[in-house]
């Protein structure tokens, strides 16, 4: 996918930029919702039929259909849905029969934990490995890193996950096969819902160890795939900077290698990497579904999966809205990092 220039062509002024950013966010979310909504209404599957259950007779299904407002014209349903969204009402889940927002709030911490930990690991390790590769381009480590970069980007996530599960969990028994931290068994209170954080709050080292063990395989699955791109891009970007004349000039002034590479060159090399890390988050929002399904990790991804299975269209749309908003927001934040790395951008604004 092409690198998204974010936000697209903004004029001057802090406030103006902020307003435009918000408008952009709303626009993107609206289009995403509209497409999903439109598609979910032209398909043969009948939500009312599903909601009413298998034993329901035709009248029952009809009643459910009326209750759900499904016999109104599509435009009315659409406006009603959008109006609900504006009020923060995502509707009820057909599957769990409760407000979707409650389900989401309950599942969110586990997913955030998984995403944040994975992201922190592959971003930092990937950047580090890319630096090493760029600075010492020859040697065994370079061959190894190249193999990781190529293989990691080609390997299907679900397959890596299954392999890790088969080998490290089932055969060797080093890690649990699936599931999240069992708070009760670990003897800690469920405060945030994110195992590692709760263990930290409870100041319980055994629980922290257990939380880390449970996290290990899903995190590793995400890292293996995502680190490849980070390594490759960091390497080429830094190698490009190290070839520049200003690097030689800085060395000529007697600066230490550390300052030359880590202060001068690295800072300039990070910009494309940061862009890409933002975009990778877009992948991660989807990739986490696959990983959560493999390891039965009770997060939003597993919730999404169950919703797909049940054709729970309200839940599907809610997830689309939230993921889209999250992605746009993250990329907006990424956009705030550029001026920190390159003051020429700050000045151009």
């Amino acid at each position: 996918m092409a690198i998204i220039q974010y936000p697209p062509s903004f004029g001057a002024g802090r406030l103006a930029r902020f307003v435009k950013g918000v408008v952009w966010l709303l626009l993107v979310v609206l289009v995403a919702v509209s497409i999903t909504f439109a598609l979910s209404r032209i398909v043969p599957a009948d939500p009312a039929r599903l909601a009413a259950g298998l034993e329901a007779g035709p009248e029952q299904v009809e009643r459910v259909r009326q209750d759900m407002g499904l016999d109104d014209p599509v435009m009315v349903q659409y406006v009603r849905y959008i109006a609900g969204l504006v009020r923060g009402d995502f509707g009820d889940s057909i599957r769990t029969r409760g407000p979707i927002l409650d389900d989401v709030v309950e599942a969110l911490p586990a997913s955030i934990e998984l995403i944040v930990v994975s992201f922190a690991i592959f971003a930092s390790l990937g950047i580090l490995a890319g630096i090493i590769w760029a600075y010492w381009p020859r040697g065994v480590h370079a061959i190894l890193l190249r193999a990781v970069a190529v293989a990691g980007s080609a390997v299907p996530v679900f397959w890596v996950g299954l392999l890790l599960q088969i080998v490290l969990a089932a055969r060797l028994g080093w890690f649990p096969v699936a599931g999240n931290l069992n708070h009760a068994a670990a003897g800690i209170a469920e405060v945030t819902g994110a195992g590692l954080l709760d263990a930290l709050i409870a100041r319980s080292p055994p629980a922290m160890w257990e939380a880390a063990r449970v996290l290990f395989l899903p995190v590793m699955t995400i890292v293996i795939h995502n680190i490849a791109l980070t390594i490759a891009l960091m390497r080429s970007s830094l190698a490009d900077q190290l070839d520049r004349e200003y690097v030689r000039a800085a060395r000529a002034r007697g600066l230490s290698e550390w300052r030359v590479v880590m202060v001068d060159a690295l800072r300039n090399a990070l910009n494309p990497v940061v862009t890409m890390l933002g975009l990778q988050l877009g992948w991660l929002l989807g990739g986490v579904v696959i990983v959560e399904v493999i390891f039965s990790w009770p997060g939003i991804g597993l919730y999404a999966f169950s919703s797909f299975q049940a054709f729970d269209y309200n839940a599907i749309m809610a997830i689309t809205v939230l993921a889209t908003a999250g992605f746009v927001l993250v990329n907006a934040l990424v956009g705030q990092i550029y001026p920190l790395l390159d003051p020429r951008i700050r000045e151009a604004r």
Partner: peptide, 10 residues
């Protein structure tokens, strides 16, 4: 600007 995989799933 869509989170591509989620969007495709949806």
């Amino acid at each position: 600007a869509f989170p591509y995989l989620v969007f495709a799933m949806a």
